[in-house]
Amino acid sequence: MSLKVLVVDDSSFFRRRVSDIINAAPRLEVIDVAVNGKEAVEKALSLKPDVITMDIEMPVMDGISAVREIMASQPTPILMFSSLTQEGAKATLDALEAGALDFLPKKFEDIARNKDEAVNLLQQRVQQIASRRALLRRAAVRPVSKPQSVSTSRAALPRVEPTTNVARPTAAPSPRFRSTGKSYQLTAIGTSTGGPVALQKILTKLPANYPHPILLIQHMPATFTAAFAARLNSLCQITVKEAENGDTLQPGVAYLAPGGMQMMLEGRPGNAKIRIIDGGERMNYKPCVDVTFGSAAKTYQDKVLSMILTGMGADGREGARMLKAAGSTVWAQDEASCVVYGMPQAVAKAGISTEDLPLERIAERILVELKRH
């Protein structure tokens, strides 16, 4: 059975172009199009597509507002199309925060070496995020307990139920984490699709006095990483910056690898510096998790706490293998909480990761691991 796709864009040319590419895939079918955000919300409710592709800038209702309304009423995997500009970066990050799962630039040639590669990439992204539809719908219908009103009016007081002997079901307590007792000098996190939201959820829970530096490798275009680092820095207690060549690693600072480049380390622990080099034409990922993880393994040996988060493909597996061989710790995000269970699955299947963790508890697990007894 084909996956149903709703294409949303105010440009008739782009609607046709995207529709032709999607319809060329055996398992994909464009069931309708919409020319603005308002129409997208209406058709999402009536047609219940498996995936929506969404432009950001549209008349009547913009894409970000449409994403918020769709995720509130008819949660659906949404792939955003954006321009590779600073304004486009900010808007795309807003869309991801609103609930969109992934994004692609409107100029496919910016992310692909040829037309065939661009076509395959779009088709693959649509099929990948479609797998999250059921999870989004289940999360939407899950009952959420509402906080009691502070008002003292009679209408606001909760109704008191008569006491009975009927046992009420209680949620099973989450398992408690324990530190392994290992000593660390560096944290390294690699991710791709779904990573911006995942990183925000983790980093915003870390204290300002985090004991060592953090390396962040997120697959992202060059014009996006500076905006993403600035956003994280405004939200977090730790400092977050786009890495620059020659940066000396400092405790409590997270360094985001710049898009289109590779981030490596040189020097010794305690005085290590960041080296930013050209991304390289042959490299599939710029930045590449394998490159940074491998460099961290050589510099910090067994003193790295590393993790692979949600993302497509297997980038990070070989770098994580080098870290494990050096004696460092490797964790992976669990399948249920990933937007795309590709990169974490690669390290888990290879037997490299020692723990598979739900996104919501990764920060907690990090802080327990670093706690001194």
Rank of each mutant, 00 (worst) to 15 (best):
L6W: 08
F13I: 06
S19W: 12
S19I: 09
N23C: 10
N23M: 08
A24E: 11
A25Y: 04
L28N: 07
E29M: 04
V30R: 14
I31K: 15
E42T: 11
L47C: 15
L47K: 14
K48F: 08
G63R: 02
A66N: 12
A72H: 13
Q74T: 14
P75G: 13
I78H: 01
F81C: 03
F81D: 05
S82L: 02
S83V: 14
L84Y: 06
E87M: 12
E87V: 06
A98P: 15
L101I: 13
P105G: 15
D110P: 06
E117G: 05
V119L: 04
V126I: 13
A134I: 08
L136Q: 01
A139K: 09
A140L: 01
A140P: 01
P147R: 12
Q148R: 09
S149E: 00
S149P: 09
V150R: 13
E161K: 00
T163K: 03
N165A: 03
V166T: 06
T170Q: 12
P175L: 02
P175Q: 06
F177P: 04
F177E: 00
T180F: 11
K182S: 11
A188P: 07
I189Y: 00
G190K: 11
G194K: 02
P196R: 05
P196Q: 04
Q200V: 03
K201E: 14
I202C: 04
T204Q: 13
K205Q: 14
L206S: 11
P207V: 02
N209F: 05
P211T: 12
P211R: 00
P213D: 10
I214F: 10
L215H: 03
L215F: 11
T223L: 10
F224T: 11
F228I: 02
A230I: 02
L235M: 01
I238A: 07
V240M: 02
A243M: 03
T248Q: 13
P251A: 11
A257T: 10
G259F: 00
G270S: 10
A272E: 14
I274P: 10
R275T: 04
D278L: 11
G280Y: 00
E281C: 05
C288S: 15
V289M: 06
V291G: 07
V291C: 13
V291S: 07
F293S: 05
Y300K: 12
Y300M: 09
S306P: 14
S306A: 15
T310Q: 01
G313N: 12
A314S: 15
G316P: 15
A320Y: 00
L323T: 04
L323H: 04
V330F: 01
E335H: 00
A336R: 00
S337C: 04
V340L: 06
A350E: 14
A350R: 08
A350Y: 01
G351A: 03
S353R: 05
D356I: 02
A363H: 08
I366E: 13
E369P: 02
